[in-house]
């Protein structure tokens, strides 16, 4: 059987809210090492990779590997019934066709359980190579959210260029043009307020803002976001979820004809 208990149920709620617009359905692949999800958006332009470690949960048991097919809008409906302070336990029998979610209030005086019907999803797993990136930028996730939201109101695509001067986001549209540059800035005392640019070589790539804006739905999960860029490769937008794991969004670039 599979059983995973998380005291901070709000994390699970935020996670599903972050994913549900981008991916309709996907498999929760559970094994003794944790829970993983890899899913593409409907247009196969971006990929979400979620990995939650077994030791990040208060309790984790998985007797045999399983792929649990989840419809994210439906999971979201159920998780909306959990309180923000609730502990959430996920449970499934081996080869089950449903996932049980149990919500316990912090003072244990309210317990509820919901069964989510599982789906059979044929999903292809893509191999994501480990690699060095030309530029890695860590910045406050709220800053990333603001930049992509602001630029989405001006244009459809963004040119992201990383140089020793900083990281620049540029767009243009009917109303005009916009440029936002962030400089390397380690002055703030709190690491989560710093902008750290690790540049091996200058790089410039163009991406669809619609997706970058969608990734920012993960902002409530983490104070810091990391962007990784290499010429002619997908950008990685990564949120560390405390000690529990990470969600990474990969977006294929726009390529000049």
């Amino acid at each position: 059987m599979f059983e995973a208990r998380i005291t901070q149920g709000a994390v699970l709620k935020k996670l599903v809210e972050a994913l549900k617009e981008l991916v309709t359905e996907g498999n929760f692949d559970v094994s003794s090492t944790g829970l993983q999800l890899q899913a593409m958006d409907s247009s196969h332009v971006c990929l979400v990779s979620l990995a939650l470690r077994e030791d990040g949960f208060e309790h984790f048991r998985c007797d045999r590997n399983m792929a649990m097919g989840i419809h994210f809008q439906n999971l979201s409906k159920i998780l909306k019934c959990a309180g923000n302070e609730d502990t959430i336990t996920l449970k499934a029998e081996d080869n089950a066709d449903q996932l049980t979610l149990m919500f316990e209030s912090s003072n244990q005086d309210r317990i509820s359980d919901f069964d989510l019907k599982l789906m059979s999803i044929e999903s292809e797993h893509l191999g994501i190579p480990d690699q060095e990136y030309s530029a890695e930028i860590k910045m406050p996730s709220s800053e990333y959210q603001r930049i992509v939201r602001d630029l989405t109101s001006i244009g459809d695509t963004v040119l992201i260029s990383a140089t020793k001067e900083g990281i620049k986001f540029s767009t243009s549209g009917d109303v005009g043009t916009a440029n936002v540059t962030l400089r390397h800035n380690t002055t703030p005392e709190k690491p989560e307020e710093q902008t750290i640019i690790d540049l091996k070589e200058p790089v410039a790539l163009t991406f669809a803002l619609r997706y970058l804006n969608n990734f920012a739905k993960a902002t409530p999960l983490a104070p810091v976001v990391k962007l990784s860029l290499t010429k002619d490769l997908p950008i990685v937008v990564e949120y560390q979820i405390g000690e529990l794991g990470a969600v990474k969004f990969y977006l294929a670039p726009k390529i000049d004809d």
Binding site: V45, L126, P234, K254
Partner: peptide
Amino acid sequence: GATQAKISAFFGNK
């Protein structure tokens, strides 16, 4: 103009 690439063009099937 620029063409939107598919993600599978970069990451092969496992």
